[in-house]
Design a protein around this nucleic acid. Structure first.
Length: 886
RNA sequence: GGUCGGUUAGCUCAGUUGGGAGAGCACCUGCCUUACAAGCAGGGGGUCACAAGUUCAAGCCUUGUACCGACCACCA
């Protein structure tokens, strides 16, 4: 141990312990002293992605919980997984294929292309897990599940088939968000609205058989080729007489009915609306109400089709330009106004989404959503912080059909089959691969080519990772024990996508909420509160941080910033600060290490413990209680800060400092006691810290632990113990600390050299404290260089013209006659008097107020009296001192 | 437009039934005191966004105003 470095170097330690934990199977669930289990499902990272700071936060919070619960004695399971992430994975591989081989997926064909994605997944998918391991995550890797593994496939097929047979999954011609780049439908949740500069085009439509022209304002003039009506509000005095007549759409000269519909806002635009049921969500609904024709003017790639007339083949953007100039030629454009509006973009492709009517598969979520709402209302599942349930409710209380089909190749192919026998044409869903048509037994059938939305399979992940629906797998994986899981940890951005879907689907198929708590953590941003993004160049790669500062420092930074807040602004300076904290712990250990041989394995008997010992044990007890409570409430910030304060401000600054004198003395008995208490406390400290900073704590533990003891990861977590509460010792020590601080303050105020020794006189009527001062006189020298001190009662005469400081219980005089600047001291004490007077007045005023005495709680009155008394005593001490100067 | 959240020290934020305004970082001063200069000791710094109200008492409760943010909805 002699070669222990002054600075802790994480690199030497982290890999070693991670491998050791794996080897000892420390991440596997084992029976502990608690009967309950604690299980947690990791939000499965995408196989495409690289981990970012958000993942680091997410994983760290989970790992803290898991390590904490494991040490508390719960049978603990953390399930890792990966998501096939249909759209983004397919896009990445397509891009690579094109860049490297100049080929498209169609050149390869579906089967070959899917093979390529599997290869890609095998090659890069594990990269993410390697990164997770660097972060120290303690999940049970044997449970690793991929959303397209056999069991999740079974789950998907079973759920789809049952919902289909119940009529909750259906196929329908419906207007969907069409992504022209992906050439697939996407769900509402995958559409992001962005502000775009556009224009209002005011166009004249001729009313048939009349001179009247209707002025219609639109932001999308090109869609007039798909118009099948003009709508006005039936209560609009200006236009209601026209209802029932026909209007002529310019360019295509189509006659369309003028209809009345409440949807039309009299105030908005011109009050006349062109209705394009094929390319607008609202118009689609108007169309349904009035049985209007749906005219599709677009191809799958977003270009105009045959309905586009002479504009056929143009993109929407080109067509808009061309059509506007054509309209201008026809002199039917009244005006063009600039207009900024929100336009839907694909979450993945970032391309403008075209509403298009097409045949898609939908899930009717109404009943499932209402159950999911109930679970949260009945607190079967609770959000932390609670306010996120608003977001959850807003989505689920207003459920819309969920479009689950995607026109992709990568994903779970929809298990619906079409019999191709002419006289049969049976359509059915099947849990297993069918051999023949169940109706006509023909073998001539084909499967629906579309795949399912990624969230369909991840929505079932709490069930499928535990083996469902395969009974053998469920037994093997302990479904009964671990389902429902305990807590879900995730970011608010996927409350709709994932949390809501798991709640709906898992509850439907298991009858239980898939987890009982959901902790929503904040989003990691840069130090200025901006989102981390490539374009801003402000991203921080967790792996870089780990390499520079160590995993523990990164983890502690993240947890110390994570409570019930919405964001976490990550400033590299803070990471450095916590790196320093890690180093502090290391050095505290270096101090203790040489004395470990003298320490016994157990805490010495209570009767031999001194005030310092009882004080630190009592403080340790307090911090243990705080940390336990905070982690249970997901207040990782409070927990981190409680230990941080304890380590710095109690253990290092005072207990270690007070120990030096003893450990370097000749008294072996005292040495043994002190080293034993130090060891005991330090073991508790590293245990308390282990969930947050697992590596350095396991390293230090290896030196502290006795042979028979297990690894720290498998040891028990410190808890509050009533027998270690020593309020009297805490009071005495607090007074002592205040006194020392006052002396140091006096020294600093007149620039006494740190090495120079002084004498001091104490005036106090507190008998216990006087005794304590006497007993601790040698420590006075260690901590404040007071080489001789005398204690008097307050009736005694004070020395004149001395440095002086006062607390509420004690006056401190440092005689330095001839050395000190009298005026300066007078002014310092006068200032102190003013300050103390103000504080006294505050409480005195309260006590003078009869209404306060009358109405306030007795405790509040009592407290005010005490405070006033204390300030008064201090005030009087200061006044005496001031008089001595005059 | 709807919903939710925010406004507290130079910066990032905490503040739990209403009862003396806190932390970390940064800053200033003095120290290489043998665990630690990635350190030690000391210090300065806040009309708690603004206004009214309830109360003996408001950072905290009510109402209003201003600004900031997130999400949802909205392509006339």
């Amino acid at each position: 141990m002699s070669e222990m470095s002054k600075t802790y170097s994480p690199k030497d330690v982290e890999q070693k312990w991670y491998n050791c934990w794996l080897e000892k199977k420390s991440f596997k669930p084992v029976d502990g002293k608690k009967e309950e289990t604690f299980s947690l499902l990791m939000p499965p990272p995408n196989v495409t992605g690289k981990l970012h700071m958000g993942h680091a936060l997410d994983q760290t919070c989970q790992d803290v919980l898991v390590r904490f619960k494991r040490m508390k004695g719960y049978k603990t399971l953390w399930i890792p997984g990966k998501d096939h992430a249909g759209i983004s994975t397919q896009a990445v591989v397509e891009k690579k294929l094109y860049q490297e081989e100049g080929k498209t997926k169609h050149d390869l064909g579906r089967e070959e292309f899917e093979k390529r994605i599997w290869q890609w997944k095998e090659q890069y998918g594990d990269e993410i897990f390697n990164q997770l391991k660097l972060m120290g995550v303690s999940c049970d890797w044997d449970y690793d599940t991929f959303t397209m593994d056999e069991i999740p496939n079974q789950a998907v097929r079973k759920v789809f088939t049952e919902l289909y047979n119940e009529g909750l999954i259906y196929q329908s011609d419906y207007i969907v968000n069409w992504d022209p780049i992906l050439q697939s439908a996407i769900s509402d949740a995958e559409v992001e609205h962005k502000e775009v500069k556009g224009a209002f085009y005011h166009i004249l439509y001729q009313v048939q058989g009349s001179d009247t022209q209707l002025e219609i304002a639109t932001t999308r003039p090109e869609t007039l080729l798909g118009d099948s009506a003009v709508a006005v509000n039936p209560n609009d005095e200006r236009f209601k007489h026209l209802i029932g007549k026909y209007a002529i759409v310019p360019i295509c000269n189509r006659e369309v009915p003028i209809i009345g519909d409440e949807h039309v806002d009299i105030e908005k635009g011109t009050g006349c609306l062109k209705v394009t049921p094929g390319h607008d969500f609202n118009d689609f609904e108007i169309g349904q109400r009035h049985q209007l024709e749906i005219i599709n003017i677009l191809n799958k790639d977003g270009t105009l089709n045959d309905q586009g007339l002479e504009f056929k083949g143009m993109s929407v953007k080109e067509a808009r330009k061309a059509i506007v100039s054509k309209l201008e030629e026809l002199s039917v454009i009244v005006k063009i106004e600039e207009h900024i509006h929100q336009v839907g973009h694909g979450q993945r492709s970032d391309e403008i989404i075209e509403p298009i009517v097409s045949k898609q598969w939908f899930v009717n979520t109404e009943a499932m959503a209402s159950e999911a709402v109930k679970s949260v209302e009945n607190e079967k599942m609770k959000f932390f912080p609670k306010t996120w349930e608003n977001t959850y409710f807003s989505w689920l209380r207003n459920p819309k059909p969920w479009c689950v089909s995607r026109q992709l190749w990568w994903g779970h192919q929809i298990p619906v089959y079409y019999c191709q026998e002419n006289n049969c044409s049976h359509v059915w869903a099947s849990e297993a691969e069918p051999q023949s048509c169940p109706k006509c037994q023909a073998q001539n059938f084909h499967q629906d080519p579309d795949v399912l939305d990624t969230w369909f399979s991840s929505g079932l992940f709490p069930l499928s990772t535990l083996g469902w629906p395969n009974e053998e797998a469920m037994r093997e994986k302990g479904f009964k024990e671990f389902y429902p899981t305990s807590t879900l940890v995730t970011g608010f951005d996927i409350i709709f996508f994932w949390v809501a879907r798991m709640m709906m689907m898992c509850q439907k198929f298991s009858g239980q909420s898939p987890f009982t708590h959901t902790y929503i953590h904040g989003i990691v941003r840069d130090k200025n509160g901006r989102k981390m993004s490539k374009s801003l160049g402000n991203g921080i790669d967790p792996i870089d941080i780990i390499n520079e500062y160590g995993t523990d420092a990164m983890r502690f930074t993240l947890t110390s910033g994570s409570g019930y807040n919405r964001g976490l602004n990550l400033d590299p300076e803070r990471i450095e600060g916590y790196r320093n904290f890690i180093n502090k712990i290391w050095n505290a250990f270096r101090f203790i290490a040489p004395f470990l041989e003298k320490a016994s394995n157990e805490l010495p008997e209570m009767r031999v413990l001194g005030t310092h010992d009882k004080w630190i044990l009592s403080e340790l007890n307090t911090v243990s209680a705080e940390v336990n409570k905070s982690i249970e409430e997901y207040r990782f910030d409070d927990a981190s800060s409680a230990i941080y304060q304890f380590v710095y401000d109690k253990f290092c600054s005072w207990y270690i400092e007070l120990s030096k004198n003893i450990l370097h003395s000749d008294n072996e008995h005292s040495q043994n006691i002190r080293s034993s208490v130090l060891k005991y406390c330090f073991k508790k400290i590293v245990a308390l810290l282990h969930p947050f900073i697992p590596f350095i704590t396991e390293e230090i533990w290896s030196y502290l632990k006795d042979e028979y003891e297990p690894l720290l990861i498998s040891s028990s977590y410190p808890e509050h113990q009533e027998e270690f509460n020593f309020p009297d010792e805490q009071t005495q020590m607090n007074k002592f600390i205040e006194t020392i601080t006052n002396i140091r303050n006096l020294r600093a105020s007149v620039n006494i050299k740190p090495k120079e020794e002084i004498s001091a006189y104490f005036f106090t009527d507190d008998k216990f404290f006087a005794e304590f001062l006497y007993e601790n006189r040698s420590f006075m020298n260690d901590l404040a260089r007071v080489n001789s001190g005398k204690v008097f009662n307050k009736k005694s005469t004070r020395p004149s013209k001395s440095l002086m400081a006062a607390t509420s219980f004690c006056e401190i005089y440092v005689p330095l006659e001839g050395v000190i600047d009298l005026e300066e001291q007078v002014s310092r004490i006068t200032k102190e008097i003013e300050k103390t007077q103000k504080e006294f007045n505050k409480f005195d005023k309260k006590l003078q107020n009869p209404k306060f005495i009358e109405n306030a709680k007795p405790e509040a009155v009592e407290e005010a009296k005490q405070k006033a008394g204390a300030f008064k005593e201090k005030l009087e001490s200061l006044k005496i001192s001031l008089e001595n100067f005059q």
